[in-house]
Simulated scan of single mutants.
Amino acid sequence: MDSPPLGRMTPYGLEHWCMLTLIVVASVALVLWARRTPGERVDRALRISGWLLLGNSVFWTAWGFMPWAWNIDESLPLHYSDALRFVLPVAMITQARWAIVVAYYWGLTLNLQSVLTPDVNYFVWVPLEFFQYWIAHGAGIVVPVVLVWGLGYRPTWRGFAVAYVITLGWAVMAFTGNLLTGANYGYLNRAPAGPSILDLLGPWPQYLLVEALLIAAVWALVMTWPWVLRDRRYGTALDGKHGLVRRAHPPHEGPGRSAAVESQASSST
């Protein structure tokens, strides 16, 4: 697809502010709902929503390979957001602990950049591309917020380490894909053509190392350590056999959560 864009989303224009407001309102409302609703109902709603989100993710990935939408620089599912489209449904459907920690770290950092500073061009059908962008990136915020602050899942140091290793693994895969195709997913193989925040981190490939260190520092000091201190203080129990998360049960639940969901989730860690 070589045709010029049909248009572009204006950062901090009306549509952007509307989506930011919707994400905040939805996050707060769903956290309150999850904390006040019986666990079985929450789990069922998560599963149904997860299957719907998964179906949409399959559709949108396939759409990118259609002749009218194909673009070597965008259609391959090598962005972190492309992977997150599938990690989120797995976390919602199975509550697999590895998926929960990846959704938490990716959704609230890597994905957050796309929410706060969107760079979106429309090529085929503006309404579809607009809503697909915000379904993916909005869910990347709302879902981990609900899982952590609504359902009480807390990352551990082991969960942090597993999420970071998965992140590096995905970067290696995307880097290899870029080498084979000449694309530049994640700006892993060269700097962006125009000015960007990466300019503050130095030239390529220096900024890759700086990025990796910054991500590790933020994930460890801001997104993991406070939960670890809190959980030690309150004696929050490990949840799942691999110790990737602890779980502080919502007020309406005791430790005796739905056995079926617990068994399914533990087998998926």
Rank of each mutant, 00 (worst) to 15 (best):
M1S: 10
D2Q: 02
D2Y: 05
P5H: 06
L6W: 03
L6V: 00
R8K: 07
M9Q: 12
T10E: 14
P11N: 04
Y12C: 01
G13N: 00
L14P: 03
E15S: 15
W17P: 12
T21E: 11
T21Y: 09
V24P: 05
V24S: 08
V25E: 01
S27W: 08
A34D: 07
G39Q: 13
E40Y: 10
R41L: 07
R41G: 03
A45Y: 07
R47K: 12
I48L: 11
S49Y: 00
G50V: 04
W51D: 06
W51G: 07
L52F: 13
L53Y: 05
N56W: 11
W60E: 12
A62E: 03
G64H: 07
G64T: 01
G64A: 02
G64P: 04
M66F: 04
M66H: 04
W68E: 07
A69S: 04
W70T: 03
I72P: 08
D73A: 15
D73M: 14
S75A: 15
L76D: 14
D82A: 11
A83F: 01
L88Q: 04
V90G: 05
M92N: 09
M92R: 02
I93L: 14
A96Q: 02
A99H: 09
A103L: 06
T109H: 10
L110E: 11
L112D: 14
Q113R: 06
Q113S: 02
S114A: 15
S114F: 15
V115A: 14
L116E: 11
V120E: 10
N121A: 10
F123R: 09
V126L: 14
L128P: 08
E129T: 01
A136E: 05
A136C: 11
H137F: 10
G138E: 03
I141V: 14
L147V: 13
W149C: 03
G152H: 11
R154I: 04
V162F: 04
Y164N: 14
T167A: 13
L168T: 07
A171D: 12
A171Q: 15
G177C: 05
L179Y: 11
T181H: 01
G182W: 04
N189I: 10
R190E: 13
P192D: 01
P195G: 00
S196P: 03
S196V: 03
I197Y: 09
L198F: 05
D199I: 07
D199M: 00
L201Q: 09
G202E: 07
G202L: 07
P203L: 04
P203H: 12
Q206K: 11
L208F: 14
V210S: 04
L214N: 14
I215K: 06
W219R: 04
W219T: 06
A220K: 05
L221N: 08
W225V: 02
W227C: 03
V228T: 08
R232Y: 06
R233N: 14
T236R: 15
A237V: 11
D239P: 13
G240M: 06
G240A: 11
G240Q: 02
L244R: 01
R246H: 06
R247K: 02
A248N: 12
P251M: 00
P251L: 06
E253K: 06
G254Y: 00
R257C: 10
V261F: 05
V261P: 01
Q264C: 12
A265E: 03
